[in-house]
């Protein structure tokens, strides 16, 4: 009998898990769209050698910044997906009216977004870094900065999308809202890769990125949830 009660009262963690799974399934059923931000990332990076000239030293010194700026833009372009389709078909209303804290549900959606758009960047970035001639020593640090930094992009971006999801032309405004908040991540991440390429210690920069991640994980879901309420009202 007791077990029946347990079965009946489903926990918030369960909702988190289901929502994460649902978003991953949805993304999987639209596979072609997953590839888009990744392709964008690759193409932007390949534009740089063509645009600024293929001098190895120049490319090498630019590599950390170029990779990170491209990651930033790729993340930003894919942000709209976190809430847009749910907004259009009314699922977002259902999320807000669920019995669970909206911030946790937001976190689930952001996690799904990161798994689909952030994680692939980690895999591709080292290959592109080779193309740009980044020293092998810096490769590990590059991946670590992306691992720590891209979730922050998704989390902070979720606030921006939540604020603009009700707008007809939210895209440009979104970049205006979100990019300034991305700048600290960009500064510390690209600086870390830069220092690593010069053979210098990077623990300070990585600690800063870890601090950003902890802060964003703890705080970002709340304003995002509040912003969703406002956008839907």
């Amino acid at each position: 009998m007791k077990q029946v009660v347990c079965m009946k009262r489903r926990s918030t963690l369960n909702a988190f898990y289901f929502l994460l799974k649902r978003d991953l399934i949805l993304n999987f059923r639209r596979r072609a769209e997953i590839a888009n931000p990744l392709l964008f990332f690759v193409i932007v990076i390949t534009l740089f050698p063509l645009g600024v000239g293929a001098k190895p030293q120049l490319l090498q010194s630019m590599a950390p910044g170029v990779i990170w700026v491209a990651a930033l833009l790729a993340a930003m372009l894919s942000l709209d997906r976190i809430f847009r389709s749910d907004f259009e078909d009314g699922s977002l209303e259902q999320l807000l009216l669920s019995a669970h804290p909206v911030s946790v549900l937001v976190l689930a959606k952001v996690a799904a977004h990161w798994l689909v758009t952030g994680l692939p960047l980690l895999v591709v970035a080292p290959l592109l870094a080779v193309l740009l001639g980044l020293p092998v020593d810096a490769m590990g640090v590059l991946v670590v900065t992306l691992l720590l930094g891209t979730p922050v992009l998704s989390l902070v971006g979720a606030i921006g999308v939540a604020l603009t999801v009700g707008l007809r032309r939210g895209g440009i405004i979104l970049s205006l809202l979100v990019l300034p908040l991305y700048i600290p991540v960009l500064i510390f991440a690209s600086n870390a890769v830069d220092m690593a390429a010069g053979g210098l210690p990077v623990t300070a920069q990585l600690s800063m990125l870890a601090a950003f991640l902890a802060l964003a994980l703890a705080l970002a879901p709340w304003p995002a949830a509040a912003a969703l309420r406002i956008s839907l009202s």
Binding site: N191, P201, T203, A204, Q205, S207, M208, A210, A211, F212, A214, L215, L217, A218, L219, W222
Partner: peptide
Amino acid sequence: VMLLGIGTAVAFTLKAFNDNLMF
């Protein structure tokens, strides 16, 4: 959980300033 996250963030920030975060 939120306070834990903020605490972690503060700890990491302090660590970053202990390791010379200089440009």
